[in-house]
Design a protein around this nucleic acid. Structure first.
Lengths: 144, 144
DNA sequence: ACCTAATAGTTGTTTTTGTAACTAACAAGC
DNA sequence: GCTTGTTAGTTACAAAAACAACTATTAGGT
């Protein structure tokens, strides 16, 4: 195997980002999938409603940069499982307000605790400074 | 909207990683998709062969942590387009050695240049120290 | 030699995503 | 009060990923 000295895949950021994201995503997925059978978009929607309270689908989409069709389907599944309620806006009957039910909130709080623990575990092995730089850099990259 | 002070999604690493990875992945995708009609797994396979030379499908899978079915299909498409050749090992007739053709190598070198430029562009706005910490932290996270 | 297990790679089926087209409701200009 | 354009959200269809089952070949034990 003739290693090419001109280019190292292991330092190429999109590759490195994809690997790190996939690893952590799959690990964390097991936690919410096993407990609540949720998909990635579903826990994201759940978290948005848990953190910010009542929102519309478009609000979530704008904030999380998730496409509206994905959100539509996630909301459908979360509503079926009674994790959230949908209420039509009487002023503008196109929009729908989403809100967690009691059990949705309970699931959110449970998962939030798990997320916090998982985040702590992830950053073991990195110094607080490194973690701060990492978060800052990721925010920069996510902004595009 | 009642913001939950206990938890910030914007600092939760799996979320942040997924956002950053998706942004850069989609941007970079446009480059190899437009030029060569490749899929994500295909450019990864191409790069592995370009960097390390002759390898088997399992070698690539082990190194890049890509599932063998994905690799199998990527190799098929790359072979159809004459970017690589497959030769059976005569010692162990289960294994197949993959190698770039001249045009595969040309595509790799073209994309390598593009990747390098793209990587440079991504890190504009971050100091060299920050980039170094970022790469180190991502490697740590990717290792799991 | 023969039986079982392991490995390389492929194929088929089911989920999940991406994309585009759609309905319904509102807004603005004329 | 029509026509045109825009926005919220859904649905339908095509592309891609995930998962399981498969073939072919080798390895190991007895």
């Amino acid at each position: 195997m003739t290693n090419d000295p001109d280019f190292d895949l292991q330092t190429f950021l999109p590759y490195l980002l994809a690997q790190a994201a996939e690893t952590s995503s799959l690990d964390f997925q097991r936690l919410y999938k096993d407990r609540y059978g949720m998909l990635r978009t579903e826990w994201r929607v759940l978290f948005h409603l848990g953190i910010y309270g009542r929102m519309t689908a478009s609000d979530i989409g704008a904030r999380a940069k998730i496409h509206k069709t994905k959100i539509s389907r996630a909301v459908q599944r979360l509503a079926e499982r009674r994790f959230l309620t949908r209420t039509r806006d009487e002023e503008d009957r196109r929009v729908e307000h989403l809100e967690l039910t009691a059990s949705g909130r309970a699931a959110y709080e449970d998962l939030r605790r798990i997320a916090r623990d998982y985040d702590l575990m992830l950053t073991e092995g990195l110094s607080p400074d490194e973690v701060a730089v990492l978060r800052k850099a990721l925010k920069h990259l996510a902004a595009g």
